[in-house]
Design a protein around this nucleic acid. Structure first.
Lengths: 96, 96, 96, 96
DNA sequence: ATTGATCACACCTTGC
DNA sequence: GCAAGGTGTGATCAAT
């Protein structure tokens, strides 16, 4: 059967501790979210609608990011043209 | 259509901001976990085994026991599996 | 551009047909498995446990043993986990 | 610990047998696919290209199915008109 | 029922 | 050509 040397043993302990620490943080964040919604509900808000808003905003952010990456790639492709007048025009067309 | 007064509007803004802040923290924690495992893998650890350790430690002892008892009872009901094709094959391999 | 003679064309057709036929069979088998589990669930069986049984039986005994030895050695290297936060908590729960 | 009565025991055995039988079929199909490609390779075909063809044909089939479902829903929506002259015209427009 | 994470498997690619 | 590591896909699982 395989055995772990003292060095690996320390590493292992560190890994487990770090993961468990992070999982606690993750759970804390999730609990916080639940709390916020619970409080909102107590103040008369429609929690389902709130979740829908958050969801939509996240999707919007993703879409924006995606778009910016495309623009980015265009910019890069046009890179060597960027400081010339006609290059400027091309960039304008690509990002319009 | 329903409208929100200035007060509720402020509340709403606060709710969304708090949730989004917490979701960022949650994501950061998850990313951190992935990073730790990736690093561990780079150091030669068996990530699957690491996950098994964390899971085992997290798992409610009761629930785990329950699951294992069900599996156990099924195994028992199958008479140690000896009369099923794959069971035969497994036995062959084990005794080869 | 490369062209296929009549002979190769026939071969090609045969290859595609055979692969697609086999992929249909594969999918049918997968669907059948899902059906069996769904039916079992309807009869009150714990599907997760059933999957665990099948998995355990399928698993190469060697490989399973290997995995468990790694987990084992990790557990051992952690000195039975007693000095980690979640380990403490688990002990608390177990002895409550 | 939970025990299974004789009736359930029979059911359980049947479930496991059926699943394992289906998994064998699934594996046989997968192996057959690999064999076909291997044979094709031996006959000078580019396996990667063959896979691409099969993949594209599957995608096409899915797209077609999707399209037909939409048509189907239109047909259904127009259902009560289907046997009247003007209804026929509407269906033609919807499925064009 | 929906979503995100994990897992298993087949595939591809790189290095030898 | 093969073995090994990375990638992608489909299924399962957990949490919501």
């Amino acid at each position: 059967m395989s055995e772990l040397g003292g060095n690996s043993r320390e590493q292992l302990k560190s890994i487990i501790e770090r993961v468990e620490r992070l999982e606690e943080e993750k759970k804390a964040a999730q609990d916080g979210i639940s709390d916020v919604y619970a409080e909102a509900k107590g103040n008369g808000f429609d929690v389902k609608a709130l979740r829908a808003i958050v969801k939509r905003r996240k999707q919007d952010a993703e879409k924006l990011k995606e778009h910016e990456e495309i623009v980015e790639s265009y910019m890069h492709a046009l890179g060597m043209l960027a400081d010339l007048p006609l290059g400027q025009a091309a960039i304008q067309r690509a990002t319009a």
